[in-house]
């Protein structure tokens, strides 16, 4: 009898119990590996910290790893080798990201529009091929393109020589510049575009499929040509997709590591392709200066947050269709 008529609220208690029992360990686990490192990361920016030195006290912060206040932050602006290296890395990251975003959009948006305009079977063939590089390991991408750019047996130089030209030292020439941009940086941009454009093509295609056909049909009736339909219908209606793509592309271009580590051999030549993520890795794990490296990581975090907020604000969607 008692079993057949449960007490009021026991069902809710059972559900609460289940939610608590399952979610608590998952949340605690997740926070332990995200929020704890985040707080720890902020903490060590105020110390001259290296795990190779035995510190004392809480988390080894103290003793041989002394508290230095905001000196790590001041170091970034100082006229010291570390400060200069940071500013070179920051400059290169800015060059890379600001060039990559328009380059990517100029290539992926038209390609997506064109792929959407062909018949459905060919469409899925094109999409499959264009997306293929994105699943390829970044290390393999770096090695393959490294071989393509290779000065003696690379495809580019073999081709150029067959046509009677001299080749280039694509990835190691510190002097050649195109429009002021070092040749190795341009090579990395082209490779990154190759490995990354499939994502945006797929996202743009999904966005294009979401635009109702009636708008285009009405425009055709009104005598609009293909460019006018793209400029005055597709582009405005694609605005939310465009915002999303711009933010995501910008975010991922701040975080490129493998190409700069493998293809241009740790930011070479002459630090022309040294970017912030590479600088953080080298400072923390090669030179074991983790306090300083964590400070650079905080700067990267701030930049990423600020650019995201600016882009979201500039491109805020204020109407629906």
């Amino acid at each position: 009898m008692a079993v057949a008529t449960p007490k009021k609220g026991s069902l809710f208690r059972r559900q609460h119990l289940f939610a608590g029992v399952t979610l608590t360990p998952i949340m605690v686990y997740m926070m332990f590996f995200t929020m704890v490192p985040m707080v720890w990361g902020i903490l060590i920016t105020f110390f001259r910290y290296s795990p190779t030195r035995a510190g004392e006290g809480f988390l080894g912060l103290g003793g041989a790893n002394p508290f230095v206040g905001i000196n790590n932050y001041l170091d970034l602006f100082a006229n010291t080798p570390t400060g200069q290296l940071f500013r070179i890395s920051l400059k290169n990251t800015l060059i890379f990201s600001l060039l990559y975003l328009p380059l990517n959009l100029i290539v992926t948006l038209p390609l997506a529009v064109l792929i959407e305009s062909v018949s459905s079977r060919i469409k899925s063939f094109f999409r499959t091929i264009y997306f293929l590089p994105t699943v390829t390991s970044a290390v393999a991408v770096s090695l393959v393109w490294g071989v393509i750019y290779h000065p003696t047996f690379g495809l580019l130089n073999l081709g150029l020589r067959a046509l009677g030209f001299n080749g280039f030292a694509w990835l190691s020439d510190p002097n050649t510049r195109v429009l002021g941009i070092p040749l190795p940086m341009i090579c990395v941009l082209i490779t990154y575009l190759w490995s990354d454009m499939g994502y945006n093509i797929v996202i743009f295609m999904a966005g294009l499929q979401g635009i109702p056909d009636v708008y285009h049909e009405a425009a055709v009736v009104d005598g609009a040509n293909a460019w006018q339909r793209f400029r005055y219908i597709t582009l405005p209606l694609l605005r939310s997709t465009l915002t999303f793509v711009m933010v995501m592309t910008m975010l991922s271009s701040w975080q490129v590591f493998v190409l700069f580590f493998v293809m241009t051999n740790r930011g070479g030549p002459a630090n022309l392709t040294r970017v912030l993520v590479l600088h953080i890795y080298e400072t923390a794990f090669r030179y074991q200066e983790m306090g300083l490296a964590a400070t650079v990581a905080m700067v990267l975090f701030l930049i990423i947050m600020i650019t995201t907020l600016i882009q979201l604000k500039l491109l805020r969607k204020d109407w629906e269709y």
């Binding site: 923390a284 983790m290 990423i304």
Partner: peptide
């Protein structure tokens, strides 16, 4: 981003 928390 992962790069921000990888050191700690």
């Amino acid at each position: 981003p992962f790069q921000v928390t990888m050191i700690p």
